[in-house]
Simulated assay, not measured.
Amino acid sequence: MASSRLKYLSLGVLVFQTTSLVLTMRCSRTQLGDGPRYLASSAVVAAEVMKIVACLLIVFKEHSYSLRSLNSLLRQEIVHKPMETLKLAIPSGIYTLQNNLLYIALSNLDAATYQVTYQLKILTTALFSVSMLGRRLGVYQWLSLLILMAGVALVQWPSETPGAAEDAPSSGSPLVGVAAVLVACCSSGFAGVYFEKILKESKQSVWVRNIQLGLFGLVFGLVGMLGYDGERVMESGMFQGYSSITWVVVALQALGGLVIAAVIKYADNILKGFATSLSIILSTLISYFWLQDFDPTSVFFLGALLVIVATFLYGHEGKPAANPSRA
Rank of each mutant, 00 (worst) to 15 (best):
E77Q: 02
A47Q: 03
A150H: 01
I308E: 14
V152P: 06
A179N: 13
L306W: 00
V53Q: 01
L285H: 07
T124Y: 05
D229I: 12
N100H: 10
Y103E: 02
H63L: 02
M234N: 14
M234Q: 15
L302P: 07
V249I: 07
S64P: 10
T117Y: 11
K51G: 09
I281A: 12
P36W: 08
E231R: 10
L255A: 06
T284C: 11
A327T: 15
Y8F: 14
I260A: 04
A164T: 00
R26N: 10
V309R: 06
A191N: 02
K272G: 07
I264W: 08
E231F: 13
L67F: 13
V130R: 03
Q240T: 13
D34Y: 09
Y118R: 03
A105T: 05
A251E: 06
T297F: 01
A179Q: 14
N99L: 12
L97T: 15
G93A: 03
C55R: 00
W142D: 11
N100V: 09
L23D: 07
Y95R: 09
L271W: 10
S283T: 09
L278F: 15
T284D: 08
A180V: 15
G241F: 00
N100D: 13
A179H: 12
P296E: 13
L306T: 06
R326W: 14
I286Q: 00
